[in-house]
C-alpha cells in the first residue's frame, strides 16, 4: 500500500512546482488524478464547514462545467459527500441517480458524464472540500483504482494543510517518511493542539506537520510527545 501512496505523491509532486498557487496546484491534482484513474476528468471544490464553496479547479472545461453544475443545482454527489463525510461512488448516473438528483443527473449525463466518484478531502472532523472524478463510461472504479483515488484525496488534504503553514513546499515525495504510521496518537495530538491554539483542527494539524518538518522528526514521534504532554504549542509561537 505504501507503493500506491508513493506513486500518487510522485505524480502530484512531479506536476507541481514549488510556489504554485493553490488554484494551480488543485488544477494539477485534477489533471494527474484524471490521467491516473483513466477518467475523462476530475474536479476539486474547496468548501467551508457551512457548505459554501471556495477555490475550485478542474482538469478540463467539461469537468469544470459539471463541477459547477452541482452548485448551480444545489445538489449532486459532491454535495452529498461533503454533507455526509463519506465517499459517494456512482458507477452509473443513468441508473437510479436521476431520482436522487433530478436536476444534476440529467444535466451531467447531457455533458457526457456517465459515472461520478466523489471523495471527501478530510481527516476526521477536518473537512476541506471534495475531489470529484468523472467518467464518460459507466462502471465502478477497479480494485486498484479505488485505493489510488483515496490516496489522491489523502495526499491532496496533506498538501492543502501544509499550504496553510509555511512548510508548504515540504509536501513532496521525500516527505513520505514523515507520515508513515498515522496512529491514533497523531489524531489525539491534533485535538490537543487545537485546544492549545484555540483554533481549528486544520490549523492544529498544519502546526504539528510544520513542526515535524522543521525539526526533521517523524510525525508519530512528535504526536507522542504532544500526547505525553512533553510538547505543547502556543498561539503566539510561530
Amino acid at each position: 500500500m505504501d507503493d500506491v501512496r508513493l506513486a500518487v505523491r510522485r505524480l502530484i509532486a512531479a506536476s507541481v512546482r514549488p510556489g504554485t498557487s493553490t488554484g494551480m496546484f488543485l488544477h494539477q491534482v485534477c489533471r494527474t488524478a484524471a490521467q491516473a484513474l483513466s477518467a475523462s476528468g476530475a474536479g476539486i471544490s474547496m468548501m467551508t464547514t457551512d457548505g459554501t464553496r471556495g477555490v475550485c479547479a478542474a482538469s478540463d472545461p467539461v469537468s469544470e462545467r459539471v463541477e459547477e453544475l452541482q452548485f448551480v443545482m444545489g445538489e449532486g454527489p459532491c454535495m452529498d459527500a461533503f454533507a455526509t463525510r463519506r465517499p459517494v461512488l456512482i458507477a452509473d448516473l443513468g441508473a437510479g441517480a436521476v431520482s436522487r438528483w433530478p436536476g444534476y443527473a440529467p444535466a451531467a449525463l447531457q455533458d457526457g458524464v456517465r459515472a461520478v466518484f466523489a471523495f471527501p478531502l478530510q481527516i476526521g472532523a477536518a473537512r476541506l472540500g471534495i475531489l470529484d472524478v468523472f467518467r464518460e463510461r459507466a462502471g465502478p472504479l477497479s480494485a486498484t483504482e479505488l485505493p489510488m483515488a483515496l490516496h489522491f484525496a489523502d495526499v491532496t488534504v496533506e498538501a492543502l494543510i501544509d499550504r496553510q503553514s509555511d512548510a508548504g513546499t515540504a509536501a513532496d515525495a521525500d516527505s513520505l517518511a514523515v507520515d508513515v504510521g498515522h496512529g491514533a496518537q497523531l489524531f489525539q495530538a491534533q485535538g490537543m493542539v487545537m485546544i492549545q491554539l484555540g483554533g481549528s483542527i486544520t490549523e492544529a494539524s498544519a502546526r504539528i506537520r510544520a513542526y515535524a518538518y522543521a525539526q526533521d522528526r517523524r510525525l508519530d514521534d512528535v504526536a507522542s510527545d504532544i500526547v505525553a504532554r512533553r510538547l505543547r504549542f502556543d498561539k503566539d509561537q510561530p
Binding site: 463525510r85 471527501p120 476526521g124 472532523a125 489524531f187 485535538g191 490537543m192 493542539v193 485546544i195 500526547v227
Partner: peptide
C-alpha cells in the same frame, strides 16, 4: 473517518 474524529475529540477533551 468517524474513528479518526473520535481520536481527535479525545485529544481535545483531554
Amino acid at each position: 473517518n468517524s474513528r479518526i474524529a473520535l481520536e481527535q475529540a479525545k485529544g481535545a477533551v483531554a
